[in-house]
Design a protein around this nucleic acid. Structure first.
Lengths: 379, 379
DNA sequence: CTGAAAGCGCTTACAG
DNA sequence: CTGAAAGCGCTTACAG
């Protein structure tokens, strides 16, 4: 079934949905018997809904007698009453919902972050809605526009390229915005990112210490801050050690294509002296490893390898691949902690936060020439 | 920072959140000037909100003059008015939101499904909220309880073990429920699953055709339907070919532990005649591949291997690992299509659907003894 | 062809 | 210590 065909089918389904469900509605909006409202609780206990509301919202202290509080709490517990979230949201303008716009929620890096954030947010009474921009500006705008009218309390955004103006517009609208993974070096933004520059420096330094001499960098052709910072970190580290930088930047769309493999092969041919490679993303590394296998290069004897982001794949590879691992749990914690702080702030311009966490270099066989070196050691 | 400590910190943050944001509220609930409501649109155009509402909801035909419709639509477009979703939700009892309770949203299988569903749902005006049960009943119950009061239109659930009663209770409450990945063979449930039984049969048959004789099965000790069906599929296929089944079932918690490796090693020792293994999940396979590497077994010469679920890891492994791949896109499509159909149905007991899709056997070197066989061929 | 009005389930300033 | 009432922004039966 083609994507296009499929979209049409769904469209037609949706149209039917609207009509049928609505015509099926009970004309008088009579209350669904199974659902119990604050009014029901009040009537049942002979109290006003005001009293019930105060108790639900923990505003009963010094207002309502302990006896009444106890009675109400017990009754609510017994009948399993839960306030209607839409009504609360309509009334207060809050929804206890945070939107996380990831680049791609099916990418293990983002899905792991998402899972950890979900846990932390949930324990604090917040829900998270995820979505994927696929690094496309239009897609991101579309998503923003649908979420804007949903009383979303805060947005955690992994912005696509050329999105700075949109971020500033959101901030101007008084939205609570936290950037993740990439940023614009703007002191008026909140963000949580990896220290890409120094992480790359560490990786280069480790390769040099192992005795590699001609370290190449394979990166993504992109304006996103991590891509630029990783390249800079590599460049400066190499130059500071009186080596010559060799870098190859591949277009995002070509990484997994034949073209991507092609340009990488060319790099190896044109620079036969390369004896180590630092891959800037894990998908670049996967393409690279494929090519290295095809052309018969042995790791690490012929070529040493370090890549970004740890994945099971790299540990199980023959030989295991060294990585710069991102501190996923810490990133998720900082994101949620920062976002909740933003939400708690009463001022129109809350304290900003900018967090940059160090990457962890995990050395495995692919970058270790010394035969005596222990596997899996960490710097 | 320990998980516990962290939870406490967050709790205290939350308390502050509630108090501050609320005391900061504008006492009169004066309208936020930046937000425009249906009333504003009506006033501005000299029309009633009724008229505006009909136009927004495409109920204007044969009611409102084309001229007025055009005027309203243009104005709405111009000022970027969007109806308040909470108010609509409160009024209609619908939220255009579907909850997807996965086992673990950071697992690539679930996150890929999630991404595809998100796309399809989004194109139909629905949002998806994801969450992870971690296969724990209490966790799943907790999640259900928080979502129950949020006007969620439908639940797509990957139920943990021993969850049948809860599912039936939800159905009794008239909730729209679709099971995914696992089911209870109950004709009153909606579900979308893999045809685990026949997928295993196909894998066994392929191994036999390649000349393997003593095929072992390594599975999870679990009551979840896929685990049971995969074991049965293996058992029947082996017996039908006059072979002896050898199966090892490992506890979920032990798969990634030393214990898991231990019991797998014992299996190899106790049955030195095993010449092929079918792994029932990819995490079992990963543990298995580690052990096979450690004990120096060559694939496929010493041991042939097929596992469930395709991952980049398996393709890049040396040698590449054969897999039973789940049709992720089709599963996501069936889930959303079925759920939307449920949502459109006006009857209290809509037509049920039970979908079981075939797995795709992708043969790679790990299960191919014939040297002439092409790599990556599909059955 | 169009509008006034009730009501969805809450929160909260105000009155007592 | 407690309650009556307004109002959040919509939808829709009903009246004209």
């Amino acid at each position: 079934m083609s994507g296009l065909l499929c979209a049409c089918q769904f469209d037609s389904i949706l149209n039917q949905v609207s009509e049928h469900t609505k015509s099926a509605k009970n004309p008088k909006m009579k209350k669904d018997q199974s659902k119990i409202s604050i009014k029901d609780v009040a009537r049942e206990l002979g109290l006003s809904i005001t009293t019930i509301s105060f108790i639900i919202n923990n505003k009963a202290k010094n207002r309502i007698s302990d006896e009444v509080i106890k009675k109400v709490e017990d009754y609510i517990e017994k009948v399993g009453y839960k306030p209607n979230a839409s009504a609360q949201s309509l009334r207060t303008g809050k929804s206890n919902t945070i939107v996380f716009m990831a680049e791609d929620i099916s990418d293990p890096f983002f899905s792991t972050i998402a899972k950890e954030m979900e846990d932390l947010a949930f324990n604090n009474g917040y829900k998270i809605i995820y979505c994927s921009t696929e690094n496309k500006k239009e897609r991101a705008l579309e998503l923003l526009s649908t979420f804007k009218d949903r009383q979303i309390d805060a947005f955690i955004i992994t912005p696509p390229e050329d999105f700075e103006d949109e971020i500033n517009a959101l901030i101007a609208e008084n939205r609570k915005i936290v950037l993740f993974d990439r940023h614009y070096n703007d002191p008026n933004h909140n963000y949580v990112v990896l220290d890409n520059y120094n992480s790359c420096g560490k990786a280069v330094k480790s390769l040099l210490e192992e005795g590699f001499e001609n370290i190449a960098f394979v990166g993504l052709e992109s304006n996103l801050s991590p891509m630029k910072e990783r390249l800079e970190g590599y460049m400066d580290a190499v130059k500071n050690n009186q080596k010559h930088p060799i870098s190859l930047l591949i277009k995002f769309d070509e990484v997994k294509s034949a073209k991507g493999k092609q340009v990488f092969e060319n790099l190896l041919k044109e620079h036969p002296n390369i004896d180590a490679i630092l891959f800037s993303t894990n998908s670049l590394a996967i393409t690279g490893l494929r090519v290295l296998r095809e052309v018969g290069k042995r790791l690490p004897e012929d070529i040493g390898v370090i890549t970004f982001d740890d994945r099971e794949l790299f540990e199980l590879h023959s030989p295991p691949i060294s990585v710069v691992s991102q501190p996923v749990s810490e990133l998720a914690e900082e994101l949620i902690k920062g976002t909740l702080n933003l939400l708690k702030s009463r001022s129109k311009s809350p304290k900003l936060f900018q967090v940059s966490l160090p990457g962890k270099l995990i050395l495995r066989k692919s970058s270790m020439l010394e035969s005596g070196a222990a596997s899996g050691k960490t710097k």
